[in-house]
Design a protein around this nucleic acid. Structure first.
Lengths: 256, 256
DNA sequence: CGGTGATTTGAAATCAGTCAAGGATCGTGG
DNA sequence: CCACGATCCTTGACTGATTTCAAATCACCG
């Protein structure tokens, strides 16, 4: 199934109308005429290799982006010079809204794996949106969804237990993979342990130990960046601070 | 000075044109004609007493709000039923954007002290924005600024040291007070220690201890909710993980 | 088949959380 | 104006989790 989707995406369909992400992307819910207008301003998918930057900190905000395949991270630099990972972006999720406030990007966006992105010049987008109320509303909705994802991130971060954050993170990723038609049960993390750590506000060793622990508990199977969710219930319980559930079952854990 | 501002705001000026927050609010930078259109749809300031709710979780998203005086918090409920404080809102800062994604509020907004808010019905706002490109851009800019504040919040939360989070929080608050013409050096926290803790992802005792410690170090003077910044440099150093600066000076701290 | 970076693992030290009181403060009503 | 109660805030001692530092192992690329 992953294969199928991947091949499909790789084909780089020429129009939004044929894009398998249409339901998630800007076009969601707008009419055919509006879709045509939108298509006219979207730059055709661009390829980025693993490690390439979509934009850098300080770049003027000129466009928003949606990956059609691959994965991105956005990251900012703290004053002490450390990288802060502010988000991970899967296909269909808007990238580039940072710096809507100041007109320049406060983050950089980096491809975590080879990826394809559609670029939507902001100027033209707003011009069209002004003429098409439907697109305007859709734009606000998409921005809102992006804020919702940010909110989920802060939701992670206020958790004080490392394994809660980790479980919530994995659960969220799993759901997002499901949304783009990939398996929610088994997937490959596009980011390193260190990037996960910087996203979760943890030390990278803590992330590693957390994964090991969940594996010992039979919640996950982990092989490098390959993750398989063995017990979704338990994962969900961990995520919501009710680890007692798994703990109540003796024998599942190696030796506590 | 605080007195003066407070009295001034209490007068509840009748129009955006005369509002002392004009530079920060939706009207910032739009023309006189646009301002008139905007004024026409803004509901006159409403009074909320300390503890009153502007909206509740699940309420359909009908309007956005800007306080002209006072202070608000927005908070959501985690699945375990605990309150998560997602933001504090001072005069001039937009409230109510949560739930732009789903059309219903995911947070509740509560007045922390007696406050006045202007209400801008979203439907009418977008209708007017479609006719006035300037207002549309301004709307995006204001939304962007709101996202910037959220981003600052996650910036706090990825910090692993409690005193970094606290210092950054106070610094940010101080700057925001300065923006609305109040003292950046001395102010009164509108929220409880517990609310600060829930915002910073810390235990309330840790917040209290942190404030005590900064007081002992001569960085702050704290009397209940009254905070005076004695050494802005040191506070900034703490915020950015360079506490070595303060520490290098022996004698400033009580007994280390 | 090395080599280089990523990941895991270990052990010690630190830091923050929890539980439990003791004080301070604020608003209210007398 | 003062007393009272409720809430908020501070403090202490202890425990547990997470960070740090260090080293070993693994995985992938050329």
């Amino acid at each position: 199934m992953n294969e199928a989707v991947s091949v499909d995406l790789a084909r780089l369909r020429r129009s939004c109308a044929n894009c398998s992400l249409q339901q998630l992307c800007l076009p969601a819910g707008i009419g055919v005429d509006a879709l045509a207008r939108l298509e006219a301003i979207v730059r055709r998918p661009r390829t980025l290799r693993r490690g390439e930057r979509l934009y850098r900190i300080g770049d003027p905000l000129g466009a928003v982006y949606v990956a059609s395949s691959g994965a991105f991270k956005t990251a900012s630099l703290s004053e002490s010079g450390e990288e802060q990972v502010t988000g991970f972006h899967l296909p269909g999720e808007l990238i580039g809204l940072d710096g809507l406030g100041e007109g320049a990007h406060r983050c950089e966006a980096v491809a975590l794996v080879d990826s394809h992105v559609c670029e939507v010049p902001l100027e033209r987008l707003t011009a069209v949106a002004l003429q098409l109320p439907g697109l305007h509303e859709q734009l606000l909705r998409v921005i809102g969804r992006s804020m919702d994802r940010d909110h989920l991130h802060t939701d992670l971060l206020v958790r004080r237990q490392a394994h809660e954050r980790l479980a919530l993170f994995l659960l969220g990723l799993s759901e997002r993979y499901a949304q783009i038609g990939q398996s929610a049960r088994e997937f490959r993390l596009p980011m390193s342990r260190e990037e996960v750590a910087r996203y979760l506000g943890l030390a990278l060793e803590t992330v590693s130990r957390g994964l090991t622990r969940m594996q010992e508990d039979g919640v996950l199977a982990v092989h490098g960046r390959r993750v398989e969710v063995l017990d979704r219930e338990a994962l969900s319980a961990l995520a919501h601070g009710r680890e007692g559930c798994a703990e109540a079952d003796p024998g599942k854990r190696r030796q506590a």
